[in-house]
Simulated scan of single mutants.
Amino acid sequence: MAVLHLVRHGESEWNLAGRVQGQSPEAGALTARGLDQAARTAALLAERHPDAAAIFSSDLPRARQTADVIAGVLGLPVHTDPRLREQDLGSLEGLRFADPLDGGIVQDAIDRLWREPWRRPGGGESITDLYERIHATLDRYAGEHEGRELVLVTHGGPVRVATTTADPRLREPVPRVEVGNATVTTLDRSGRYSPDASR
Rank of each mutant, 00 (worst) to 15 (best):
L150E: 12
A142R: 11
G72H: 12
E125H: 09
L35S: 15
V153R: 07
R133E: 07
L84S: 03
P117Y: 06
R40N: 02
P121H: 05
L44P: 06
V106Q: 08
G123M: 02
G104T: 00
R133G: 02
G122V: 04
A63T: 09
T128H: 12
Y131L: 04
A136H: 05
G123C: 03
S58K: 07
R148S: 11
Q37M: 07
D129C: 02
E93P: 13
T31L: 14
E132M: 10
G90K: 05
V69F: 13
A27I: 05
G90Q: 06
S91N: 03
A142W: 01
D68F: 01
I134L: 10
E149K: 13
D68V: 10
L84E: 01
L76V: 11
A136D: 06
E116P: 04
G72R: 14
V106Y: 00
S58E: 10
D111H: 09
R62T: 02
A52C: 06
L44R: 15
S24G: 11
G34V: 12
H145P: 03
R83N: 00
L138Q: 08
L45T: 10
G104R: 12
P77L: 05
E125D: 02
A53M: 04
Q107C: 01
A67M: 09
Q23V: 12
R40P: 11
G103T: 14
E116T: 12
R40M: 03
Q37R: 01
L44A: 15
L152D: 05
G94M: 06
G72F: 08
I110V: 15
L101Y: 08
E146A: 15
Q107S: 07
R33C: 02
Y141G: 01
H155Y: 08
D139V: 00
T137H: 05
L138G: 04
R120F: 00
E93I: 06
L45F: 09
W118H: 14
L95F: 15
L60Q: 15
Q107M: 06
I134W: 03
P77G: 01
L44Q: 10
G124Y: 02
G122W: 09
A63F: 11
A71Q: 08
V106K: 08
V106L: 06
D111Y: 09
R64D: 07
P61I: 09
A29C: 14
L89D: 04
Q87H: 04
P117G: 08
D88V: 00
S57H: 07
Q87Y: 00
R115C: 01
H49L: 07
L95A: 10
G34K: 14
